[in-house]
């Protein structure tokens, strides 16, 4: 139990009687590891990544071969035994039931139809884990939803779910908003996706799918994305005067609203020690009296 951020257990006399007060200003009150990658599934990105990986692999192999050649030449020149020829490593195959699904090229008729209808407003279509994904331009989402609902070949009657994800590591957008559409008559699901930069307000889906009303309110409440032409763009789960958007990645998981730690009786100081240690682990800064 010796993490670097564990504060020194203070002497009994130095510890205030409590309750401990959460100090907002004095110190880094949160320890947030901001995500470094952008886990946005995408066929293009996947293909590019695979290609890059293959190239890197190939380059590495070539380098190994070259190294071998030079080593061999050197050994021959020095008259020693030749080094072993390198063996190209085969990717290890795990013997288990876990095979993470990868993006695949779109072959479903619905996606192709959407692509045909929307033209260059579609940024990407692909399939992954048996799900259809269509990423459209953020200005065209209303149009895309209208097509999905009204086109006879698509007929997605229900907006089952709408959600958003925060990608702080991405450069040209901040969040993605996804729409999960269900076609009850055709037993199909489709995911529409838009990428939204900070401050951009996408068109609300309420006029097409009334069920978007609360879901968009929730997205606004949790991630701070406002929607245009929404009938009632207010917070839904948090109180109206709440600060910040909880599901953003830069929102602390501990700290704000954390209950003050106060024990009525602490036998042997054990609880206090636990509290301090826990606080250290969680990154809470407890106000302690100055040493002087």
């Amino acid at each position: 139990m010796s993490e670097p951020n564990v504060p020194q257990t203070p002497e009994a006399a130095e510890v205030p009687a409590g309750p401990y007060v959460y100090d907002y200003k004095a110190a880094p009150y949160r320890q947030i590891t901001m995500p470094k990658t952008v886990p946005l599934p995408s066929y293009h990105a996947y293909v590019a990544e695979q290609k890059a990986a293959a190239e890197a692999d190939e380059a590495k192999w070539q380098k190994t071969l070259a190294d071998y050649e030079t080593a061999k030449a050197k050994a021959e020149a020095e008259g020693k035994d030749a080094p072993k020829p390198p063996v190209r490593p085969v990717p290890r195959k795990d013997d288990n039931d876990m095979k993470p699904p990868v993006p695949q090229e779109a072959t479903d008729a619905d996606l192709l139809k959407l692509k045909e209808l929307l033209g260059d407003k579609v940024e990407e279509i692909f399939e992954q884990a048996g799900e259809l994904v269509c990423q459209v331009k953020k200005e065209a989402i209303h149009e895309a939803l209208a097509f999905c609902r009204d086109e006879a070949a698509l007929k997605y009657e229900m907006l089952a779910d709408q959600s958003a994800t925060h990608y702080p590591a991405a450069k040209d957008y901040a969040c993605s908003v996804v729409y999960h559409l269900t076609s009850i008559s055709r037993r199909k699901r489709l995911r529409l996706r838009i990428l939204v930069p900070e401050g951009f307000a996408p068109e609300s889906a309420c006029s097409l799918y009334p069920s978007a009303n609360w879901m968009e309110r929730e997205i606004y409440d949790m991630l701070g994305i406002r929607f245009q032409n929404h009938p009632d763009m207010t917070r839904i789960l948090c109180p109206e005067d709440w600060e910040g958007y909880p599901l953003r990645k830069d929102y602390p998981t501990v700290g704000w609203g954390q209950r003050d730690i106060a024990f009525r009786e602490d036998r042997g100081g054990m609880l206090e020690r636990i509290a301090l240690q826990k606080a250290g682990q969680l990154g809470i800064n407890l106000k302690q009296p100055k040493a002087d």
Binding site: F263, R264, E265, D266, R267, G268, M270
Partner: peptide, 13 residues
């Protein structure tokens, strides 16, 4: 008491 819920291998009770 609240502290009765803190169990451990050592300490009072």
């Amino acid at each position: 008491n609240r502290e009765d819920f803190s169990l451990g291998t050592e300490g009072l009770g």
